[in-house]
Design a protein around this nucleic acid. Sequence first.
DNA 1: TCGGTATATGCCTTGACACGTATATAATCT
DNA 2: AGATTATATACGTGTCAAGGCATATACCGA
Lengths: 109, 109
Amino acid sequence: MLVTSTFDVVGEPTRRRILDLLREGPRPVGELVRLIGCSQPGTSRHLRVLRDAGLVAVRPEAQRRLYVLRPQPLAEIDAWLTPYRELWANRLDALEQHLDDLDAQKMED
Amino acid sequence: MLVTSTFDVVGEPTRRRILDLLREGPRPVGELVRLIGCSQPGTSRHLRVLRDAGLVAVRPEAQRRLYVLRPQPLAEIDAWLTPYRELWANRLDALEQHLDDLDAQKMED
DNA sequence: TCGGTATATGCCTTGACACGTATATAATCT
DNA sequence: AGATTATATACGTGTCAAGGCATATACCGA
């Protein structure tokens, strides 16, 4: 990933799973390894990517390292989603919407 | 992509750009090619992926093919995002933000 | 039917990522 | 200091996706 954006970071299912688990509170690596059934090195690598994206922070606790969720970067995705949200909320797909717009234009003439 | 989910489909920046353009209304392939500066075959392949994910539909119009946005699958991302939305919203008040910042200093990556 | 336009697909190369194994680093305890 | 636990990184590998180029397909006008 040359330009790592929040989108492709959470595009990885395992990383989404990690975030979901961290929503319940900080967890050490070993616990994540056990819960997601990924290898320890693999988990550490995913955590590295999440940390680089600002989605988690790490806090040393004795020999272990507690990972903590930092959800702010997800706001970027939320922002991108915003204009689409209205579209499916109206239960209209863009084609119908467009046709409606055309009708509206004709009526204005 | 073995298990193509909506997440990795919109993880691609060019595809997000295509969706953004289709929000304004249906467009033929050639126009998308011109607007996003991607090759014609490349654009067609991205459209193929979007179509397989149910994010666009196609409507033949003479020799051209009009692509239309179908935003419903994006609701999956929106749903995943929902529990996080409260989290970053709660961190908007000044006190918690300040405490977060202190934590961030201690955690230091 | 022929030529031109619009779009899709096949083939190939390249690069990036996820994963596993092994090893390094760090902290703790005796 | 040595042993043990917890986590990170290095290295090699297989896989898969994206891009470019060439070509196939489909539709249209003359």
